[in-house]
């Protein structure tokens, strides 16, 4: 293995470590939301510092790779992709922290009925699975798997789209739960953005492996 490959492997491993931490952060917010576990929410908030530190380290390593290794072709695309994936992961970490913050500030446990009718857990399941699968796609350079993200993101979008009317009905029936309902709406909006981040990462993997730019294209036509 040449020196350049060793350095890029280190960069890849650092990115995957950050990825796993971000997935854990998101899983913990789900657990904290369902069990109304404020300690766990506080842990997520504290861990956000680790996510940020990892982002800075990867940024710095990318800068060094450009300056010292002069990557070209697939190596150049890899470092460019890492820079953007790093940013996507950091934002996903911010989303987890945002959800953890309102859990830690909530006065009462979230009502089971509210969690069920808004399908927020289903949304969690999809977004976390997407993040896990896209991590596998990155590790194995599997662009076929990466392409499945575009379709799967639509499921999250659908739950998000339906959330407004569901919550309007709920608030009109239970006006005393308005704050809780708004918090869940906020979580849904944030999880929808996790889907977007995962989709962006999928685009970066395809760019890195296949040298194809999918941004602002109709992904449905490019699947398969």
């Amino acid at each position: 293995m040449i020196h350049l490959e060793e350095e890029l492997n280190v960069l890849k491993q650092e990115t995957m470590n950050m990825w796993q931490l971000v997935i854990q952060q998101l899983q913990k917010t789900e657990e904290a939301l369902i069990n109304f576990d404020k300690d766990l929410a506080s842990e997520v908030i504290a861990n956000e510092r680790r996510v940020n530190a990892m982002e800075l380290k990867i940024d710095n390593d990318c800068e060094n790779a450009f300056a010292l290794l002069n990557p070209v072709a697939v190596d150049l695309r890899f470092v460019l992709a890492i820079l953007k994936i790093n940013n996507n992961l950091e934002r996903t970490g911010d989303i987890a922290e945002g959800i953890a913050k309102f859990i830690s500030q909530a006065k009462n446990p979230f009502e089971t009925q509210l969690l069920e009718i808004t399908r927020v857990r289903e949304m969690y399941m999809h977004s976390i699975e997407m993040l896990k699968d896209i991590l596998i796609a990155f590790d194995t350079e599997n662009t076929k798997l990466a392409r499945t993200l575009f379709r799967r993101d639509e499921m999250i979008d659908e739950i998000n789209r339906n959330a407004n009317s569901i919550l309007v009905d709920y608030i009109s029936k239970y006006p005393e739960s308005t704050e809780q309902a708004l918090n869940i709406l906020s979580a849904i909006r944030k999880l929808e953005r996790v889907g977007d981040q995962a989709k962006n990462i999928a685009e970066e993997i395809i760019f890195y492996v296949e040298a194809k730019v999918l941004k602002h294209t109709k992904k449905g036509l490019l699947e398969g």
Binding site: I2, L4, P71, V72, A73, V74, D75, L76, R77
Partner: peptide
Amino acid sequence: IFTHPNDIKTQNYITGR
């Protein structure tokens, strides 16, 4: 050639592999 060469031999050469 330096961003997405078509031939793997070109890629291996310019990336030092």
